[in-house]
Design a protein around this nucleic acid. Structure first.
Lengths: 287, 287
DNA sequence: GTTCCGCATGAATCGATAG
DNA sequence: ACTATCGATTCATGCGGAA
Protein backbone atom coordinates (compact mmCIF):
# COMPACT_ATOMS: atom_id res chain seq x y z
CA UNK A 1 0.00 0.00 0.00
CA UNK A 2 1.56 3.21 -1.23
CA UNK A 3 0.32 6.70 -1.56
CA UNK A 4 0.25 8.61 -4.82
CA UNK A 5 0.22 12.36 -4.54
CA UNK A 6 -1.41 14.74 -7.00
CA UNK A 7 -1.03 18.47 -6.59
CA UNK A 8 -2.82 20.97 -8.77
CA UNK A 9 -1.70 24.57 -8.44
CA UNK A 10 -3.29 27.76 -9.76
CA UNK A 11 -0.99 30.38 -11.24
CA UNK A 12 1.73 31.12 -13.73
CA UNK A 13 4.28 28.33 -13.63
CA UNK A 14 7.03 30.94 -13.47
CA UNK A 15 5.81 31.94 -10.01
CA UNK A 16 4.74 28.53 -8.77
CA UNK A 17 7.95 26.82 -9.78
CA UNK A 18 10.05 29.42 -7.97
CA UNK A 19 8.69 28.00 -4.71
CA UNK A 20 9.70 24.46 -5.54
CA UNK A 21 12.94 22.71 -4.56
CA UNK A 22 15.84 21.96 -6.89
CA UNK A 23 16.22 18.55 -8.55
CA UNK A 24 12.80 17.28 -7.59
CA UNK A 25 11.13 15.95 -10.73
CA UNK A 26 11.94 12.87 -12.78
CA UNK A 27 9.92 13.99 -15.76
CA UNK A 28 8.50 17.24 -17.03
CA UNK A 29 6.03 16.67 -19.83
CA UNK A 30 3.92 19.50 -21.13
CA UNK A 31 2.18 21.07 -24.04
CA UNK A 32 2.48 24.80 -23.53
CA UNK A 33 0.07 27.29 -25.06
CA UNK A 34 1.06 27.69 -28.67
CA UNK A 35 1.74 31.12 -30.06
CA UNK A 36 -1.41 33.20 -30.55
CA UNK A 37 -3.55 30.63 -28.76
CA UNK A 38 -5.07 30.58 -25.29
CA UNK A 39 -5.32 34.35 -25.38
CA UNK A 40 -7.34 34.43 -22.19
CA UNK A 41 -4.63 32.77 -20.14
CA UNK A 42 -1.35 34.21 -21.17
CA UNK A 43 -2.49 37.12 -23.30
CA UNK A 44 -1.96 35.30 -26.57
CA UNK A 45 1.80 35.31 -26.97
CA UNK A 46 2.93 36.68 -30.30
CA UNK A 47 5.13 34.36 -32.32
CA UNK A 48 7.91 36.93 -32.34
CA UNK A 49 7.80 37.16 -28.55
CA UNK A 50 7.41 33.47 -27.84
CA UNK A 51 11.03 32.59 -27.07
CA UNK A 52 11.43 35.60 -24.82
CA UNK A 53 8.27 34.59 -22.95
CA UNK A 54 9.17 30.94 -22.62
CA UNK A 55 12.82 31.08 -21.61
CA UNK A 56 12.40 32.22 -17.99
CA UNK A 57 10.06 29.30 -17.48
CA UNK A 58 12.41 26.73 -18.97
CA UNK A 59 15.08 28.16 -16.66
CA UNK A 60 12.94 27.23 -13.66
CA UNK A 61 12.17 23.83 -15.15
CA UNK A 62 15.88 23.19 -15.56
CA UNK A 63 16.32 23.88 -11.86
CA UNK A 64 13.54 21.66 -10.55
CA UNK A 65 14.40 18.71 -12.82
CA UNK A 66 16.57 15.95 -11.41
CA UNK A 67 19.94 15.45 -13.15
CA UNK A 68 18.66 12.07 -14.34
CA UNK A 69 15.33 13.53 -15.41
CA UNK A 70 13.84 14.37 -18.80
CA UNK A 71 11.86 17.28 -20.20
CA UNK A 72 9.40 16.52 -23.01
CA UNK A 73 8.08 19.59 -24.81
CA UNK A 74 5.16 19.07 -27.18
CA UNK A 75 5.00 22.02 -29.54
CA UNK A 76 4.43 23.02 -33.15
CA UNK A 77 5.12 26.25 -34.96
CA UNK A 78 2.26 27.85 -36.81
CA UNK A 79 2.17 29.13 -40.35
CA UNK A 80 2.56 32.89 -40.47
CA UNK A 81 2.39 34.79 -43.72
CA UNK A 82 2.69 31.63 -45.78
CA UNK A 83 5.80 30.49 -43.92
CA UNK A 84 6.47 28.26 -40.96
CA UNK A 85 7.52 30.53 -38.14
CA UNK A 86 10.95 29.92 -36.67
CA UNK A 87 10.27 30.40 -32.98
CA UNK A 88 10.54 26.72 -32.16
CA UNK A 89 13.92 26.47 -33.85
CA UNK A 90 15.08 29.55 -31.98
CA UNK A 91 13.73 28.14 -28.74
CA UNK A 92 15.79 24.98 -29.11
CA UNK A 93 18.94 26.99 -29.74
CA UNK A 94 18.22 29.30 -26.81
CA UNK A 95 17.47 26.44 -24.42
CA UNK A 96 20.80 24.85 -25.25
CA UNK A 97 22.46 28.07 -24.20
CA UNK A 98 20.56 27.77 -20.93
CA UNK A 99 22.26 24.44 -20.37
CA UNK A 100 19.71 21.99 -21.74
CA UNK A 101 20.84 19.11 -23.90
CA UNK A 102 18.63 18.59 -26.95
CA UNK A 103 18.66 14.83 -26.85
CA UNK A 104 15.99 13.83 -29.33
CA UNK A 105 13.01 14.94 -31.36
CA UNK A 106 10.07 12.58 -31.38
CA UNK A 107 7.42 13.03 -34.02
CA UNK A 108 3.81 12.82 -32.95
CA UNK A 109 1.87 11.80 -36.03
CA UNK A 110 -1.70 13.00 -35.52
CA UNK A 111 -3.78 10.54 -37.42
CA UNK A 112 -6.82 12.76 -37.26
CA UNK A 113 -5.60 16.25 -37.85
CA UNK A 114 -7.55 19.38 -38.54
CA UNK A 115 -9.17 19.38 -41.97
CA UNK A 116 -8.94 22.09 -44.54
CA UNK A 117 -7.49 22.86 -47.90
CA UNK A 118 -5.26 25.66 -49.06
CA UNK A 119 -3.65 26.42 -52.36
CA UNK A 120 -0.12 26.21 -50.99
CA UNK A 121 -0.28 23.77 -48.12
CA UNK A 122 -1.60 20.42 -46.94
CA UNK A 123 -3.08 19.57 -43.59
CA UNK A 124 -0.62 19.65 -40.73
CA UNK A 125 -0.56 16.15 -39.28
CA UNK A 126 2.45 16.21 -36.96
CA UNK A 127 3.84 17.92 -33.92
CA UNK A 128 7.23 17.95 -32.30
CA UNK A 129 7.92 16.23 -28.98
CA UNK A 130 11.30 17.66 -28.09
CA UNK A 131 13.34 15.77 -25.54
CA UNK A 132 15.69 17.79 -23.36
CA UNK A 133 17.98 16.56 -20.59
CA UNK A 134 20.35 17.99 -18.04
CA UNK A 135 22.94 15.25 -18.36
CA UNK A 136 23.91 12.73 -20.99
CA UNK A 137 23.00 9.95 -18.60
CA UNK A 138 19.31 9.93 -17.79
CA UNK A 139 16.75 7.39 -16.75
CA UNK A 140 15.01 5.60 -19.59
CA UNK A 141 12.92 2.46 -19.29
CA UNK A 142 12.74 1.33 -22.89
CA UNK A 143 11.17 -2.03 -22.16
CA UNK A 144 8.08 -0.30 -20.76
CA UNK A 145 7.03 0.93 -24.16
CA UNK A 146 7.87 -2.07 -26.28
CA UNK A 147 5.44 -2.91 -29.00
CA UNK A 148 3.99 -6.31 -29.63
CA UNK A 149 4.92 -7.45 -33.08
CA UNK A 150 5.73 -10.65 -34.88
CA UNK A 151 3.14 -13.01 -36.31
CA UNK A 152 0.19 -11.08 -35.07
CA UNK A 153 1.20 -7.82 -36.60
CA UNK A 154 2.28 -9.51 -39.77
CA UNK A 155 -0.98 -11.31 -40.35
CA UNK A 156 -2.89 -8.27 -39.29
CA UNK A 157 -0.97 -6.17 -41.71
CA UNK A 158 -1.75 -8.61 -44.47
CA UNK A 159 -5.44 -8.39 -43.74
CA UNK A 160 -5.56 -4.64 -43.89
CA UNK A 161 -7.60 -3.23 -46.67
CA UNK A 162 -6.00 -1.94 -49.78
CA UNK A 163 -6.89 1.55 -48.73
CA UNK A 164 -5.16 1.17 -45.44
CA UNK A 165 -2.05 -0.12 -47.05
CA UNK A 166 -1.65 2.71 -49.45
CA UNK A 167 -2.54 5.33 -46.92
CA UNK A 168 -0.83 4.28 -43.79
CA UNK A 169 0.82 1.06 -42.85
CA UNK A 170 1.30 2.22 -39.33
CA UNK A 171 -1.85 0.61 -38.02
CA UNK A 172 0.08 -2.30 -36.67
CA UNK A 173 2.14 0.09 -34.62
CA UNK A 174 -0.59 2.52 -33.73
CA UNK A 175 -2.29 0.19 -31.35
CA UNK A 176 0.31 0.35 -28.66
CA UNK A 177 -1.31 0.34 -25.27
CA UNK A 178 -4.49 -1.17 -26.59
CA UNK A 179 -5.26 -4.61 -25.29
CA UNK A 180 -1.78 -4.96 -23.96
CA UNK A 181 -2.84 -7.95 -21.92
CA UNK A 182 -3.79 -9.81 -25.07
CA UNK A 183 -0.29 -9.59 -26.35
CA UNK A 184 1.60 -10.64 -23.26
CA UNK A 185 3.91 -13.49 -24.10
CA UNK A 186 4.23 -12.47 -27.70
CA UNK A 187 7.33 -11.15 -29.29
CA UNK A 188 7.91 -7.51 -28.70
CA UNK A 189 9.97 -4.91 -30.44
CA UNK A 190 11.19 -1.49 -29.48
CA UNK A 191 9.27 1.44 -30.92
CA UNK A 192 10.77 4.18 -33.03
CA UNK A 193 10.83 7.91 -32.48
CA UNK A 194 7.62 8.28 -34.47
CA UNK A 195 4.42 8.08 -32.41
CA UNK A 196 1.09 7.37 -34.06
CA UNK A 197 -1.66 8.75 -31.89
CA UNK A 198 -5.07 10.17 -32.60
CA UNK A 199 -6.38 13.21 -30.84
CA UNK A 200 -9.41 12.38 -28.76
CA UNK A 201 -11.96 14.44 -30.59
CA UNK A 202 -15.63 13.78 -30.10
CA UNK A 203 -15.54 13.43 -26.36
CA UNK A 204 -18.29 14.89 -24.29
CA UNK A 205 -17.42 18.45 -23.47
CA UNK A 206 -13.87 19.34 -24.16
CA UNK A 207 -11.88 17.78 -26.89
CA UNK A 208 -8.43 16.88 -25.77
CA UNK A 209 -5.86 18.40 -28.03
CA UNK A 210 -3.51 16.66 -25.64
CA UNK A 211 -4.61 13.03 -25.65
CA UNK A 212 -3.91 10.86 -22.62
CA UNK A 213 -1.81 8.51 -24.68
CA UNK A 214 0.82 11.15 -25.25
CA UNK A 215 1.86 11.83 -21.62
CA UNK A 216 1.21 8.18 -20.87
CA UNK A 217 3.82 7.02 -23.33
CA UNK A 218 6.48 9.36 -22.02
CA UNK A 219 5.64 8.63 -18.39
CA UNK A 220 6.09 4.95 -19.12
CA UNK A 221 9.37 5.59 -20.89
CA UNK A 222 11.01 8.00 -18.46
CA UNK A 223 9.63 7.19 -14.99
CA UNK A 224 8.96 4.32 -12.69
CA UNK A 225 6.30 4.05 -10.03
CA UNK A 226 6.30 6.79 -7.38
CA UNK A 227 8.55 9.03 -9.43
CA UNK A 228 7.58 12.67 -9.69
CA UNK A 229 6.00 14.14 -12.82
CA UNK A 230 5.47 17.84 -13.52
CA UNK A 231 3.25 19.53 -16.07
CA UNK A 232 3.70 23.31 -15.83
CA UNK A 233 0.85 23.91 -18.31
CA UNK A 234 -1.48 21.17 -17.19
CA UNK A 235 -4.63 22.55 -18.80
CA UNK A 236 -7.56 20.32 -17.93
CA UNK A 237 -5.35 18.02 -15.89
CA UNK A 238 -4.66 15.24 -18.34
CA UNK A 239 -1.04 14.69 -17.37
CA UNK A 240 -1.79 14.45 -13.65
CA UNK A 241 -4.75 12.21 -14.28
CA UNK A 242 -2.59 9.80 -16.24
CA UNK A 243 0.23 10.04 -13.71
CA UNK A 244 -2.09 9.09 -10.88
CA UNK A 245 -3.52 6.17 -12.81
CA UNK A 246 0.03 4.97 -13.41
CA UNK A 247 1.10 5.32 -9.79
CA UNK A 248 3.32 8.34 -10.30
CA UNK A 249 3.26 11.42 -8.09
CA UNK A 250 2.57 14.59 -9.98
CA UNK A 251 2.30 18.35 -9.86
CA UNK A 252 0.19 20.25 -12.34
CA UNK A 253 0.21 24.01 -12.75
CA UNK A 254 -2.47 25.96 -14.58
CA UNK A 255 -2.86 29.70 -14.93
CA UNK A 256 -6.49 29.85 -16.03
CA UNK A 257 -9.05 29.45 -13.26
CA UNK A 258 -11.51 27.66 -15.49
CA UNK A 259 -8.95 25.03 -16.47
CA UNK A 260 -7.66 24.83 -12.91
CA UNK A 261 -11.07 23.79 -11.65
CA UNK A 262 -11.37 21.31 -14.47
CA UNK A 263 -7.99 19.88 -13.56
CA UNK A 264 -9.04 19.53 -9.93
CA UNK A 265 -12.01 17.55 -11.07
CA UNK A 266 -10.18 15.36 -13.56
CA UNK A 267 -6.97 14.65 -11.73
CA UNK A 268 -8.74 14.16 -8.40
CA UNK A 269 -5.85 15.56 -6.35
CA UNK A 270 -6.63 13.63 -3.21
CA UNK A 271 -3.90 11.39 -1.92
CA UNK A 272 -4.79 8.04 -3.34
CA UNK A 273 -4.08 4.62 -2.05
CA UNK A 274 -2.84 1.98 -4.41
CA UNK A 275 -3.07 -1.65 -3.49
CA UNK A 276 -0.38 -2.73 -5.77
CA UNK A 277 -1.11 -6.42 -5.99
CA UNK A 278 -4.80 -5.98 -6.43
CA UNK A 279 -4.66 -3.15 -8.91
CA UNK A 280 -1.35 -2.79 -10.63
CA UNK A 281 -1.40 0.51 -12.43
CA UNK A 282 -1.20 -1.13 -15.81
CA UNK A 283 -4.79 -2.16 -15.54
CA UNK A 284 -5.95 1.33 -14.80
CA UNK A 285 -5.52 2.79 -18.20
CA UNK A 286 -5.98 1.91 -21.79
CA UNK A 287 -4.91 3.53 -24.95
CA UNK B 1 6.13 12.76 -79.44
CA UNK B 2 8.16 14.83 -77.05
CA UNK B 3 11.69 14.69 -75.88
CA UNK B 4 12.75 14.33 -72.30
CA UNK B 5 16.24 15.49 -71.46
CA UNK B 6 18.46 14.03 -68.78
CA UNK B 7 21.82 15.58 -68.00
CA UNK B 8 24.26 14.08 -65.55
CA UNK B 9 27.21 16.26 -64.60
CA UNK B 10 30.37 15.39 -62.74
CA UNK B 11 31.66 17.89 -60.21
CA UNK B 12 30.85 19.96 -57.16
CA UNK B 13 27.43 21.50 -57.60
CA UNK B 14 28.86 24.84 -56.53
CA UNK B 15 30.93 24.91 -59.71
CA UNK B 16 28.48 23.23 -62.04
CA UNK B 17 25.57 25.42 -61.00
CA UNK B 18 27.57 28.58 -61.58
CA UNK B 19 27.45 27.79 -65.29
CA UNK B 20 23.69 27.46 -65.36
CA UNK B 21 21.19 30.19 -66.18
CA UNK B 22 18.99 32.03 -63.69
CA UNK B 23 15.39 30.93 -63.06
CA UNK B 24 15.65 27.69 -64.94
CA UNK B 25 14.36 24.94 -62.67
CA UNK B 26 10.83 24.25 -61.48
CA UNK B 27 11.92 21.92 -58.70
CA UNK B 28 15.11 21.22 -56.83
CA UNK B 29 14.87 18.04 -54.82
CA UNK B 30 17.87 16.55 -53.14
CA UNK B 31 19.23 14.57 -50.28
CA UNK B 32 22.65 16.08 -49.63
CA UNK B 33 25.51 14.26 -47.99
CA UNK B 34 24.91 14.37 -44.29
CA UNK B 35 27.52 15.73 -42.02
CA UNK B 36 30.47 13.42 -41.50
CA UNK B 37 29.25 11.02 -44.15
CA UNK B 38 30.53 10.46 -47.64
CA UNK B 39 33.94 11.58 -46.55
CA UNK B 40 35.45 10.61 -49.88
CA UNK B 41 33.24 12.98 -51.79
CA UNK B 42 33.26 16.23 -49.95
CA UNK B 43 36.00 15.65 -47.48
CA UNK B 44 33.66 14.64 -44.68
CA UNK B 45 32.10 17.91 -43.63
CA UNK B 46 32.16 18.34 -39.88
CA UNK B 47 28.76 19.07 -38.33
CA UNK B 48 30.02 22.39 -36.99
CA UNK B 49 31.08 23.42 -40.48
CA UNK B 50 28.02 22.12 -42.29
CA UNK B 51 26.05 25.36 -42.58
CA UNK B 52 29.10 27.27 -43.72
CA UNK B 53 29.75 24.61 -46.35
CA UNK B 54 26.17 24.40 -47.54
CA UNK B 55 25.20 28.06 -47.80
CA UNK B 56 27.17 28.97 -50.96
CA UNK B 57 25.44 26.09 -52.68
CA UNK B 58 21.95 27.10 -51.61
CA UNK B 59 22.81 30.57 -52.87
CA UNK B 60 23.34 29.13 -56.33
CA UNK B 61 20.21 27.04 -56.05
CA UNK B 62 18.25 30.15 -55.19
CA UNK B 63 19.50 31.73 -58.38
CA UNK B 64 18.73 28.86 -60.75
CA UNK B 65 15.27 28.19 -59.32
CA UNK B 66 12.28 29.75 -61.03
CA UNK B 67 10.29 32.25 -58.93
CA UNK B 68 7.40 29.78 -59.03
CA UNK B 69 9.65 26.85 -58.19
CA UNK B 70 10.23 24.84 -55.05
CA UNK B 71 13.29 23.49 -53.26
CA UNK B 72 12.84 20.27 -51.28
CA UNK B 73 15.71 19.48 -48.96
CA UNK B 74 15.68 16.00 -47.44
CA UNK B 75 17.92 16.09 -44.41
CA UNK B 76 18.24 14.85 -40.86
CA UNK B 77 20.63 15.91 -38.17
CA UNK B 78 22.72 13.19 -36.65
CA UNK B 79 23.23 12.53 -32.99
CA UNK B 80 26.56 13.89 -31.84
CA UNK B 81 27.75 13.32 -28.32
CA UNK B 82 24.33 12.12 -27.22
CA UNK B 83 22.62 15.20 -28.58
CA UNK B 84 20.87 16.03 -31.80
CA UNK B 85 23.13 18.44 -33.59
CA UNK B 86 21.69 21.84 -34.44
CA UNK B 87 23.11 22.37 -37.89
CA UNK B 88 19.80 21.79 -39.62
CA UNK B 89 18.05 24.37 -37.44
CA UNK B 90 20.83 26.82 -38.10
CA UNK B 91 20.71 26.08 -41.80
CA UNK B 92 17.02 26.95 -41.95
CA UNK B 93 17.61 30.25 -40.18
CA UNK B 94 20.58 31.06 -42.40
CA UNK B 95 18.74 30.19 -45.62
CA UNK B 96 15.94 32.54 -44.65
CA UNK B 97 18.51 35.30 -44.41
CA UNK B 98 19.61 34.37 -47.92
CA UNK B 99 16.09 35.10 -49.10
CA UNK B 100 14.47 31.67 -48.98
CA UNK B 101 10.98 31.28 -47.58
CA UNK B 102 10.66 28.30 -45.25
CA UNK B 103 7.23 27.27 -46.44
CA UNK B 104 6.75 23.89 -44.85
CA UNK B 105 8.39 20.95 -43.19
CA UNK B 106 7.21 17.57 -44.41
CA UNK B 107 7.95 14.52 -42.34
CA UNK B 108 9.14 11.45 -44.13
CA UNK B 109 8.17 8.53 -41.94
CA UNK B 110 10.42 5.62 -42.85
CA UNK B 111 8.13 2.72 -42.32
CA UNK B 112 10.16 -0.40 -42.80
CA UNK B 113 13.38 0.23 -41.02
CA UNK B 114 15.47 -2.45 -39.53
CA UNK B 115 14.95 -2.90 -35.81
CA UNK B 116 17.47 -1.60 -33.36
CA UNK B 117 17.98 0.70 -30.46
CA UNK B 118 20.62 2.41 -28.36
CA UNK B 119 20.77 2.75 -24.58
CA UNK B 120 19.41 6.29 -24.69
CA UNK B 121 17.66 6.33 -28.00
CA UNK B 122 15.20 4.50 -30.20
CA UNK B 123 15.60 3.87 -33.87
CA UNK B 124 15.34 7.03 -35.92
CA UNK B 125 12.40 6.48 -38.24
CA UNK B 126 11.90 9.91 -39.76
CA UNK B 127 13.60 12.61 -41.75
CA UNK B 128 12.83 16.19 -42.56
CA UNK B 129 11.80 17.24 -46.04
CA UNK B 130 12.14 21.00 -45.83
CA UNK B 131 10.24 23.01 -48.39
CA UNK B 132 11.72 26.34 -49.43
CA UNK B 133 10.39 28.81 -51.95
CA UNK B 134 11.42 32.08 -53.52
CA UNK B 135 7.93 33.57 -53.52
CA UNK B 136 4.73 33.02 -51.60
CA UNK B 137 3.03 32.01 -54.82
CA UNK B 138 4.48 28.85 -56.28
CA UNK B 139 3.28 26.04 -58.49
CA UNK B 140 1.64 23.17 -56.66
CA UNK B 141 -0.41 20.39 -58.26
CA UNK B 142 -2.18 18.96 -55.26
CA UNK B 143 -4.55 16.71 -57.18
CA UNK B 144 -1.60 14.72 -58.48
CA UNK B 145 -0.89 13.24 -55.07
CA UNK B 146 -4.39 12.61 -53.74
CA UNK B 147 -4.99 9.45 -51.74
CA UNK B 148 -7.83 6.95 -51.46
CA UNK B 149 -10.29 7.98 -48.79
CA UNK B 150 -10.67 6.34 -45.41
CA UNK B 151 -12.92 3.49 -44.38
CA UNK B 152 -15.96 5.62 -43.90
CA UNK B 153 -16.49 6.50 -47.53
CA UNK B 154 -14.91 3.34 -48.77
CA UNK B 155 -17.63 1.18 -47.26
CA UNK B 156 -20.25 3.59 -48.44
CA UNK B 157 -18.91 3.57 -51.95
CA UNK B 158 -18.81 -0.20 -51.96
CA UNK B 159 -22.39 -0.38 -50.86
CA UNK B 160 -23.48 2.04 -53.52
CA UNK B 161 -21.81 0.10 -56.23
CA UNK B 162 -23.34 -3.12 -55.01
CA UNK B 163 -26.73 -1.53 -55.02
CA UNK B 164 -26.03 -0.27 -58.46
CA UNK B 165 -25.31 -3.76 -59.66
CA UNK B 166 -28.10 -5.73 -58.05
CA UNK B 167 -30.92 -3.28 -58.36
CA UNK B 168 -32.67 -1.59 -61.20
CA UNK B 169 -30.08 -0.53 -63.69
CA UNK B 170 -32.26 2.16 -65.13
CA UNK B 171 -31.81 4.15 -62.00
CA UNK B 172 -28.16 4.44 -62.70
CA UNK B 173 -28.94 6.38 -65.80
CA UNK B 174 -31.21 8.84 -64.09
CA UNK B 175 -30.67 10.66 -60.85
CA UNK B 176 -29.13 7.80 -58.98
CA UNK B 177 -26.14 7.64 -61.22
CA UNK B 178 -25.33 11.21 -60.43
CA UNK B 179 -25.18 10.39 -56.78
CA UNK B 180 -22.81 7.58 -57.48
CA UNK B 181 -20.57 9.79 -59.52
CA UNK B 182 -20.61 12.32 -56.73
CA UNK B 183 -19.38 9.72 -54.33
CA UNK B 184 -16.81 8.51 -56.77
CA UNK B 185 -15.60 12.04 -57.14
CA UNK B 186 -15.17 12.08 -53.41
CA UNK B 187 -13.19 8.89 -53.09
CA UNK B 188 -9.90 10.65 -52.82
CA UNK B 189 -8.59 13.01 -50.20
CA UNK B 190 -5.66 15.35 -50.04
CA UNK B 191 -2.66 14.02 -48.18
CA UNK B 192 -1.09 15.56 -45.12
CA UNK B 193 2.43 16.77 -44.56
CA UNK B 194 3.41 13.34 -43.20
CA UNK B 195 4.70 10.96 -45.86
CA UNK B 196 4.60 7.24 -45.22
CA UNK B 197 7.16 5.80 -47.54
CA UNK B 198 9.24 2.71 -47.22
CA UNK B 199 12.97 2.78 -47.61
CA UNK B 200 14.30 0.46 -50.23
CA UNK B 201 16.25 -1.67 -47.87
CA UNK B 202 17.49 -4.48 -50.04
CA UNK B 203 18.90 -2.09 -52.56
CA UNK B 204 22.02 -3.50 -54.05
CA UNK B 205 23.22 -0.19 -55.37
CA UNK B 206 23.89 2.11 -52.55
CA UNK B 207 23.77 2.70 -48.88
CA UNK B 208 21.95 5.93 -49.61
CA UNK B 209 18.40 5.20 -48.58
CA UNK B 210 16.84 7.58 -51.05
CA UNK B 211 13.90 5.62 -52.37
CA UNK B 212 12.38 6.48 -55.71
CA UNK B 213 9.07 7.19 -54.07
CA UNK B 214 10.41 10.25 -52.28
CA UNK B 215 11.49 12.36 -55.28
CA UNK B 216 8.56 10.90 -57.18
CA UNK B 217 6.06 12.31 -54.72
CA UNK B 218 7.54 15.79 -54.80
CA UNK B 219 7.97 15.74 -58.58
CA UNK B 220 4.29 14.89 -58.87
CA UNK B 221 3.35 17.64 -56.45
CA UNK B 222 5.48 20.49 -57.73
CA UNK B 223 6.00 19.90 -61.45
CA UNK B 224 4.09 19.05 -64.58
CA UNK B 225 5.38 17.24 -67.63
CA UNK B 226 8.43 18.74 -69.32
CA UNK B 227 9.24 20.90 -66.33
CA UNK B 228 12.85 20.99 -65.22
CA UNK B 229 14.06 19.14 -62.13
CA UNK B 230 17.46 19.52 -60.50
CA UNK B 231 19.24 17.31 -58.01
CA UNK B 232 22.57 18.90 -57.07
CA UNK B 233 23.60 15.80 -55.09
CA UNK B 234 22.16 13.16 -57.35
CA UNK B 235 24.17 10.25 -56.02
CA UNK B 236 23.38 7.14 -58.02
CA UNK B 237 20.93 9.04 -60.18
CA UNK B 238 17.61 8.18 -58.56
CA UNK B 239 16.05 11.60 -58.97
CA UNK B 240 16.91 11.84 -62.66
CA UNK B 241 15.75 8.29 -63.25
CA UNK B 242 12.39 9.06 -61.73
CA UNK B 243 12.15 12.39 -63.52
CA UNK B 244 12.71 10.73 -66.85
CA UNK B 245 10.12 8.07 -66.15
CA UNK B 246 7.68 10.83 -65.31
CA UNK B 247 8.40 12.86 -68.41
CA UNK B 248 10.27 15.66 -66.67
CA UNK B 249 13.56 17.06 -67.87
CA UNK B 250 16.29 16.86 -65.28
CA UNK B 251 19.83 17.74 -64.37
CA UNK B 252 21.77 15.69 -61.85
CA UNK B 253 25.10 16.70 -60.40
CA UNK B 254 27.43 14.33 -58.62
CA UNK B 255 30.92 14.98 -57.29
CA UNK B 256 32.10 11.42 -56.85
CA UNK B 257 33.23 9.68 -60.02
CA UNK B 258 31.99 6.32 -58.87
CA UNK B 259 28.50 7.64 -58.27
CA UNK B 260 28.61 9.69 -61.43
CA UNK B 261 29.12 6.59 -63.52
CA UNK B 262 26.38 4.82 -61.65
CA UNK B 263 24.07 7.74 -62.31
CA UNK B 264 24.90 7.66 -66.00
CA UNK B 265 23.90 4.05 -66.03
CA UNK B 266 20.73 4.41 -63.98
CA UNK B 267 19.36 7.63 -65.34
CA UNK B 268 20.27 6.77 -68.91
CA UNK B 269 20.98 10.34 -69.91
CA UNK B 270 20.26 9.89 -73.57
CA UNK B 271 17.58 12.11 -74.97
CA UNK B 272 14.55 9.93 -74.78
CA UNK B 273 11.52 9.89 -76.91
CA UNK B 274 8.14 9.53 -75.31
CA UNK B 275 5.20 8.45 -77.37
CA UNK B 276 2.63 9.90 -75.11
CA UNK B 277 -0.37 7.88 -76.18
CA UNK B 278 1.42 4.60 -76.05
CA UNK B 279 3.25 5.07 -72.76
CA UNK B 280 1.80 7.87 -70.72
CA UNK B 281 4.17 8.39 -67.86
CA UNK B 282 1.48 7.71 -65.32
CA UNK B 283 1.70 4.05 -66.09
CA UNK B 284 5.35 3.92 -65.27
CA UNK B 285 5.07 4.31 -61.58
CA UNK B 286 2.72 3.69 -58.73
CA UNK B 287 2.20 5.29 -55.38
C1' DG C 1 -26.61 -7.49 -29.40
C1' DT C 2 -24.50 -6.20 -33.86
C1' DT C 3 -23.74 -3.28 -37.65
C1' DC C 4 -24.51 0.77 -39.83
C1' DC C 5 -25.40 5.60 -40.63
C1' DG C 6 -25.77 10.60 -39.45
C1' DC C 7 -23.67 14.23 -37.22
C1' DA C 8 -20.86 17.40 -34.55
C1' DT C 9 -16.36 18.84 -33.82
C1' DG C 10 -11.66 20.18 -33.79
C1' DA C 11 -3.70 23.61 -30.93
C1' DA C 12 -5.64 25.06 -38.70
C1' DT C 13 -4.86 28.27 -42.63
C1' DC C 14 -5.82 31.53 -46.21
C1' DG C 15 -7.84 35.47 -48.24
C1' DA C 16 -10.91 39.14 -47.97
C1' DT C 17 -12.93 42.78 -45.43
C1' DA C 18 -12.95 46.27 -41.93
C1' DG C 19 -10.84 49.62 -38.54
C1' DA D 1 0.94 49.80 -44.25
C1' DC D 2 -0.45 47.06 -40.52
C1' DT D 3 -3.56 44.52 -37.37
C1' DA D 4 -8.08 42.30 -36.14
C1' DT D 5 -11.98 39.54 -37.31
C1' DC D 6 -14.77 36.34 -40.26
C1' DG D 7 -16.08 32.88 -43.71
C1' DA D 8 -14.89 28.84 -46.36
C1' DT D 9 -12.45 24.90 -46.70
C1' DT D 10 -11.99 19.79 -45.15
C1' DC D 11 -11.74 14.81 -42.93
C1' DA D 12 -10.87 11.35 -38.97
C1' DT D 13 -13.21 10.08 -34.97
C1' DG D 14 -16.64 8.68 -31.58
C1' DC D 15 -21.14 9.10 -30.06
C1' DG D 16 -26.08 8.07 -30.33
C1' DG D 17 -29.90 6.40 -32.66
C1' DA D 18 -31.78 3.21 -36.16
C1' DA D 19 -32.21 -1.01 -38.91
Amino acid sequence: MKKVEVHIRLGDCLDILSEMPDNHFDLIVTSPPYADSRAKTYGGIKPDKYVEWFLPRTQEMLRVLKPTGTFILNIKEKAVNGERHTYVLELILAMRKQGWLWTEEFIWHKKNCYPGKWPNRFRDAWERCLQFNKKKKFNMYQEAVMLPMGDWAESRLRKLSETDKTRDESKAQSGFGKNVSNWIGRDKVYPTNVLHLATECGNKNHSAAFPKTLPEWFIKLFTKEHDWVLDPFVGSGTTCQVAREMGRNSVGIEALLENYELALENANPVQHTLFEKEVPYETHYTA
